[in-house]
């Protein structure tokens, strides 16, 4: 509900209504009251009536609190490592930097490829669940349930050694991209189906009444609303896809995780091999978060 258009009196009323937690339970002891305040402080940030809910934090406070969180986390890490008394030998790993970097590039390549292909699959099977063709609906259901219900590891093995082999797909990188896309596509399909379902039937009726064709209804009514709703879960799924690609090492694809594992096997410097790995994956997943946040803002509208 847009608060900014309300008169001051109405605004106070709605604010009081938001405070329902306090008003609905009249008998309360002081400890209960304190618990209530605690709970609200933890999870219920008040929505300011004068600005959009996503208002900017004060810059100074933002910087200070960010610094505080960073310090806290690094303190924790530092404490852990100091107890371990681990001697870092970065120079051993530095020798293998080219291997790590090549693995990193391979992960980017596979991720990009499967990101595109899985989006196509996800949209297709997400919409196919509403298909008029009965067998296509059944096929989509089977696809989604089987893929979501079995381990990726098994899927990779079966796809590579059985299906790709039978089809004569020699290139393991192609096979890798395809199997990752099939895997991720099943999750995307469910996300997109749920998004499309969330657009009310009355709107589809209205679209019909004003004379839009089915494709026009999707283009002008359903998709614009679905995009805002599915962006956050899509971002999560894309980040998972990037990390899950590490499992492709079992079919001897030299991607980032495999490279780190090899470095570790050669140098016995476990942490020095794997810490860059974590940093590398963050480097890929954080931009996705950022990008989707921006897209979300661009497509958002008040409801």
């Amino acid at each position: 509900m847009p608060k900014k258009n309300l008169s001051p009196r109405l605004r106070d009323q709605t604010l009081q209504e938001q405070d329902g937690l306090q008003r609905k339970n009249p008998p309360r002891s002081s400890s209960q009251l304190r618990r209530g305040h605690f709970f609200r402080a933890l999870f219920l940030r008040p929505v300011s009536p004068d600005s959009s809910p996503r208002q900017k934090d004060n810059r100074g406070i933002l910087a200070f609190n960010t610094l505080l969180v960073v310090l806290l986390l690094s303190g924790l890490m530092w404490f852990g490592f100091s107890r371990l008394q681990y001697t870092f030998m970065w120079e051993n790993v530095w020798i293998y930097r080219v291997n790590l970097f090549n693995g990193f590039l391979m992960t980017i390549l596979i991720s990009l490829g499967s990101l595109l292909l899985s989006t196509l699959l996800g949209v297709f099977f997400g919409l196919a669940q509403r298909s008029r063709i009965h067998i296509l609906r059944i096929f989509s259901r089977f696809y989604i349930e089987i893929i979501r219900g079995t381990p990726l590891l098994v899927q990779i093995l079966i796809f590579f050694y059985v299906i790709a082999n039978a089809l004569g797909v020699e290139n393991r990188y192609t096979a890798g991209i395809v199997v990752m896309s099939i895997f991720s596509g099943a999750y995307l399909a469910e996300i997109i189906r749920a998004g499309v379902d969330s657009v009310g039937t009355t709107q589809i009726e209205t679209a019909k009444a004003i004379g839009l064709t089915k494709p026009q209804t999707y283009r002008f009514v359903i998709f614009p609303q679905v995009i805002t709703r599915v962006l956050p879960p899509l971002a999560g799924q894309f980040a998972s896809l990037i990390k899950d690609s590490s499992l492709l090492s079992i079919i001897a694809i030299k991607e980032f995780t495999m490279a780190a594992r090899e470095v570790n096997a050669n140098t016995f410097s476990t942490l020095e091999s794997y810490i860059p790995l974590a940093a590398g994956y963050l480097l890929l997943t954080i931009p996705i978060s950022f990008l989707t946040k921006r897209l979300e803002k661009r497509f958002s509208y008040e409801t």
Binding site: T202, Q203, Q225
Partner: peptide, 10 residues
């Protein structure tokens, strides 16, 4: 014209 929710919210 329907009872309600005629307009597209976006």
């Amino acid at each position: 014209v329907y009872q309600a929710y005629n307009l597209f919210p976006h």
